[in-house]
């Protein structure tokens, strides 16, 4: 069992707290079968280091886990990790989570780049990502009112604390996914073919039962010849409304 990175410094009033979905991602990418898949793709010692991008890092627990356990998961110590989040408080918290995890004595000495504040992967150079990870806001709930974003994304002028409304808004960003919980995920899925490395790119996206995962998978298969999609991790089998799964999306024959 690989260690879970510490997030004790993170204020969960305004940054998503690691939960079942986060842990499912950790378990999935480090599972024997996925680690074998990833090592087969990226494990050759002197190939170029893969860039791992997580969008919506929140506390940073998933990115930190990938960075600190790079040797076990990817078969190499020199992977690059990069994150984005729409919430500037999450960006700072996640940076600290990854840096702290990498200082642990048992940690892989992989390379953490930065966490940028942005909308999805809008600022990432096309086809530069080898491993993409996304735990989206997947709950079917009304999207927050983005007109407040600029004000709510920083501390109120002259204040040292966020307001209650601000915290509620920032947390809504982390879970509310609009109709079917798929509005944000659909925008992200659209970017994936352009984002992934043409030869070896692979994406892990978390979906809940409400997202109609089978429809989502059919849609991805329709991207064209060569695109593969497969469920590689599941949890919440007790048929609760939040049954979760991780789908792996990749280009075949790479």
């Amino acid at each position: 069992m690989l260690p879970t990175p510490s997030t004790s410094h993170v204020c969960f009033d305004r940054v998503y707290e690691p939960a079942e979905d986060s842990y499912l991602l950790l378990d999935t990418i480090s599972s024997t079968s996925e680690a074998a898949f990833l090592q087969n793709r990226f494990g050759h010692v002197s190939s170029t280091p893969p860039l791992i991008l997580e969008v919506g890092v929140g506390s940073g627990v998933v990115l930190a886990f990938a960075a600190a356990n790079a040797r076990t998961i990817f078969g190499r110590n020199d992977v690059l990790t990069l994150g984005t989040d729409i919430n500037s408080f999450a960006c700072r918290a996640a940076s600290q989570t990854v840096s702290t995890a990498l200082r642990e004595p048992t940690s892989s000495s992989s390379i953490f780049l930065d966490v940028a504040n942005g909308d999805l992967a809008g600022s990432i150079r096309p086809h530069s990502v080898d491993v993409f990870i996304f735990n989206p806001p997947y709950v079917p709930a009304e999207l927050p009112d983005f007109s407040r974003h600029e004000n709510f994304n920083t501390l109120p002028a002259g204040q040292e604390k966020t307001t209650f409304d601000q915290d509620s808004y920032l947390l809504e960003l982390s879970y509310a996914g609009g109709a079917d919980g798929m509005v944000v995920t659909n925008r992200m899925l659209e970017q994936i073919p352009n984002l992934l490395d043409l030869k070896r790119g692979v994406a892990y996206v978390l979906l809940c039962a409400q997202n109609k995962p089978e429809e989502v998978k059919r849609h991805i298969t329709g991207w064209g010849p060569g695109w593969g999609v497969e469920t590689v991790g599941t949890s919440g089998r007790q048929a609760g409304w939040e049954k979760l799964q991780i789908v792996r999306i990749w280009k075949e024959g790479a």
Partner: peptide, 18 residues
Amino acid sequence: EYKVMEGVANFLLPGHLV
């Protein structure tokens, strides 16, 4: 122009540019 503050780059766009 994208601002960098305390080491964090901000790529959020104003509504009319999205």
